[in-house]
Amino acid sequence: MSTETAGGSAPTSPSSSINLESVRAIAKKDFKDSFRSWVFWGLSIFFFTLLVVLTGLLSYFDEVFFGVSAAEAGVTTELLVVAASFVTRLVIPLIALVLGWKAISGERESGSIKVLLSLPHSRKDVILGKLIGRSAVLSVSLIVGFVFAAVVVAALIGSFDVVDYVGLLAMSILYGIAYTSLAVSISSLTRSTTIAGAALFGVFLLFYVVWNAIIEAIDLLMAFDYISGVPYTVETDQGTIELERMPDWAYFIESIDPGYAYNNALSVATSAAESELGVAIEEIMFDGSVPFFLQDWFSFVVLLAWIVVPLAIALYRFDRVDL
């Protein structure tokens, strides 16, 4: 990193390098600090409860509607993954954003960052250490919640599939780290926790509201012919039907939403895959050549990009500001 070309008067020196020992020390301290608060255990209990309650509900409805116990009927880990991911897709970003919110802006606001940086750490060490520390809080609480819940879930579900269950856990961790990176990075851009909070609320709105609205808007604009869609044909019993789909770039926008990527990544990691019908429709819509950004592997690229890109910007900028 010391070879990085600097803009302005920024240091191009050993001072802005990354030292793994420093990163480890900061991450450890940060994790310890969160571990002591109610946050860690609160999150663990939350994830545990979520899985147990969902499994319970699925079993209950199975009995009510089909009159059989879950073990005999079709309540599978796959079903649990689908149900749980509806909740985790919305809740994990919220948790990650709150966890990362004050990671750096809070230390700058209170001045305690001077304690960290009076010691021989670089500013890059601080960002990386904080990211790892906060990601660890989220990841370890997910693991603790999942592991304890596994006992109950396995008892309730006849065909407990460890691979699916671990797949959900692993993808949730990846998804959580993406949002933690976004939050810690934004937190490093300002000295004010108020501004950082507002910016993170903006991120929350962006992916919960705006992103969907964009897709809706594109659909609407297409309906009124402001945007020309791409025509495709479907062969049916009644003959050929002419249909229209959104242009490729609209699908690209949709695909880079971390939540969308999370769902797709889940379909790779677990057997809760996209329905065969869904895949078939895509095949038809894109005339057999589905673009790379709609293929499942691309969702991993999206999630990794949401970790790396904000982090790179933060690492670059944080070296160049007055604390």
Binding site: P11, S13, P14, S15, S110, G111, S112, V115, L117
Partner: peptide
């Protein structure tokens, strides 16, 4: 600026009005 890390490795600092 360029050797801050080396400097801080050999320096002890009591910052002003800092929270623990």
């Amino acid at each position: 600026q360029t050797h801050s890390r080396d400097i801080r490795a050999r320096t002890g600092v009591l910052p002003e009005g800092v929270e623990t």
